[in-house]
């Protein structure tokens, strides 16, 4: 009779001033990153200022969504109860075509086939109605 309790969710982002636009776009399956109007550099993660020149003049740009695996690790231990039913999973750092590096998961692929240097593209994982996480899959 009683429904089995749903597994706990992984930790989810709580959007704030710097990041609300990013998470709102992700929810719409758009991947945006910041570019500085003063020095022209891209940055990731989103901030209220440019981490290259401290300017507050930042633009959001639609990113290509193309990236390359910089490093990865197949994780067999859940770092949080919300990952208990998700192991093994691939934790990865990817270098975006625009330059910055970000943390993500490599999905839609056998973990044993992930390689450094592999070309990947963004895909969107709707975790809840409010939160979508950009993840990456092999091209």
């Amino acid at each position: 009779m009683a429904e089995s309790p749903s597994p706990p969710l992984p930790p989810l982002p709580k959007p704030y001033q710097d990041t609300a636009a990013y998470w709102e776009a992700a929810r719409e399956h758009r991947f945006i990153i910041q570019k500085c109007k003063d020095c022209g550099e891209y940055q990731f993660y989103p901030r209220g200022v440019c981490s290259h020149c401290l300017s507050s003049e930042l633009d959001w740009e639609e990113a290509s969504g193309k990236a390359e695996v910089y490093s990865f690790s197949i994780n067999y231990r859940a770092p949080h109860p919300g990952f208990a039913d998700k192991t093994p999973f691939v934790l990865a750092l990817v270098t975006l075509d625009e330059g910055p590096r970000m943390m993500t998961n490599i999905v839609d692929c056998d973990p044993d086939e992930v390689r450094i240097g592999m070309a990947v593209t963004v895909t969107f994982d709707d975790i809840t109605e409010q939160v979508t996480l950009p993840k990456f899959r092999p091209i």
Partner: peptide
Amino acid sequence: EVFGPTQFEEPYG
């Protein structure tokens, strides 16, 4: 719920 820049890492495990 993750507040602050670590929200760009913790949700990925």
